[in-house]
Amino acid sequence: MKIAIASGKGGTGKTTLSTNLSVLLSETERVVLTDLDVEEPNSGLFIKGDLKSEEIKYKMIPEWKEDTCTLCGECQKNCNFHAVIQLGPQIMVFPELCHSCFACSELCPTNSLPMQAQRMGTIKEYQYRQMAFVESCLDIGQEQAVPLIGQTNEYVNQKFDEDYIMIFDAPPGTSCPVIEATKDVDYVILVTEPTPFGLHDLKLAVETMKELKKDYGVVINRYGLGNDDVIDYCKEENVTVLAKIPNSRKVAEIYSKGKLIYNEIPEIKEQFLKLKEFILTRKKEFVQ
């Protein structure tokens, strides 16, 4: 079963929830945690496992062959992203704009834009206690998260069978990277905080999940802070609140040392156990 932890607003606790929930689940279940926030993966700050394998990932980018090109201009007509531009007697390719769709390359009458592999990032797999941890990271200077998120999902699908509980730490926001990270999961947990900002972005995230026709629920982190507007919104919209993690200075202190919180404070553990139970119930239904 696949579960994505997403948020809308950044900094609401996706990584805190992903790491703590995964480790708690792994006490009794087979779990793989995957960090899909490839632009700035940070689950690894809390999960320091033994490196088991590392793969370099590539995306395909066209390369212009001047000697065979007839400057017919087909390539730039076919590129939806203006990644291929004809400028007088030359063709310019912008790798940062290219979406690796192959249109320019396949439709070039003289094969003058062959696709070439370009390195974009790495996928590392670690073992942490009983749990597998996959960390995906874009190279510095790379601008597109989506291709690497897609390849990371493929990696996890190949390496781990359906019996695993797969937790995905998603990127923040509601744009393409989040869509790519959540589109194939069975359930999405949206983490928010009870502040005006948290509510604003939660609404966007809920709209996105509705559009994707996803099953989702909300976890309110730092509960007790701000106001009750998030709770009221969830009631009005019939959104399930799965857990409320109390706001606590002690959590911030433990977190700032790079440690897990679920086992340190009873009120916090209670909320994580509630989430665990919810997921195990879901998994049973899912298997049937």
Binding site: N80, F81, H82, A83, I85, Q86, L87, G88, M92, F94, L97
Partner: peptide
């Protein structure tokens, strides 16, 4: 156009 407005307009100027 969601992407590549800069190169496209530059090309127009050319």
């Amino acid at each position: 156009e969601a992407h590549g407005a800069g190169p496209k307009t530059s090309q127009k100027l050319f």
